[in-house]
Design a protein around this nucleic acid. Structure first.
Ligand code: ZN
Ligand code: ZN
Ligand code: ZN
Ligand code: ZN
Lengths: 134, 134
DNA sequence: GACTTACTGAGAACCGTTGTCAAAACGATT
DNA sequence: AATCGTTTTGACAACGGTTCTCAGTAAGTC
């Protein structure tokens, strides 16, 4: 039987607080920062669990896996700030159809798709502008 | 000054022969298989070079980076067979516009996008069918 | 052919992640 | 509340892909 531990709850909560995509290591660091004694391996295990249960989404970037607390049970994509990780969930019916159609047109079955947009959010753009011309 | 070596040429050629997306290690194994004495580190360096110069595309899957010789200078996406790596380049103007529009609607600048479809190609689907009900 | 310097090969180092296993602790049961 | 079977945790080792290091090699120039 699956058990409830403060560790799992701590990870779920910290992931929610993070807002955007974060790495397991960053999350672990944040937890320790706030006084938790949770182990890194436990954070990895909890994140894997959350992902399996559909409570979190994950993506790979520059050799590491990033996680985010996402609307459970909804298929959506992400608009992610490269600077701060801030993320917007986006739905795009046209893209869904395009993907389905493209796959079947080429005889591909069991098709899944990866669709993400990476950019610099308004706030980070502002900050960068301000810094470059004072 | 940049120099031409048989190693770089061997990697370029092997990548072309591969047809689909392959890992640096797989490419290295294939090269050794065919008698080459090239070192793994050199394969990595050559692939990084090809990617930087726009001659190859790369993507991350399951913790490793895969490379493919792609039409240089053209922005396109990929339809990739999870089983054999076979890849089809696809262009999708509607998706390009959707991505641009979505990013700017949310105030994001310098937006790039990752759009890939993973499935099982016709040939691999056939093979799997045949194997499961003989 | 000699020289300069970019490139290569072999292995160590690196880094994110997963495995191992004894100790801790959840939760059902008495 | 104490017991018990089982899950989960924590500390650390191990793993796998990639990058770094550095001495030796060789491409391109003169
Ligand atoms: Zn930002
Ligand atoms: Zn979708
Ligand atoms: Zn295939
Ligand atoms: Zn595109």
């Amino acid at each position: 039987m699956k058990r409830n531990t403060w560790q799992k709850e701590a990870v779920r909560s910290a992931l929610g607080d993070a807002g955007g995509f974060v790495s397991a290591q960053a999350l672990h660091a944040a937890l320790r920062e706030s006084g938790s004694t949770i182990a890194l391996a436990t954070v990895y295990r909890a994140l894997t669990g959350l992902t399996d249960e559909g409570e979190a989404d994950s993506l790979q970037q520059e050799g590491e896996v990033l996680y985010r607390a996402c609307t459970p049970g909804s298929h959506h994509h992400h608009l992610i700030c490269r600077r701060c990780g801030t993320t917007v969930e986006i739905e795009a019916q046209p893209v869904e159809e395009w993907a389905r159609r493209t796959a079947s047109e080429h005889g591909f079955t069991r098709a899944e798709h990866v669709v993400d947009i990476f950019g610099v959010c308004a706030r980070c753009s502002d900050l960068a502008d301000r810094a470059s011309r004072p």
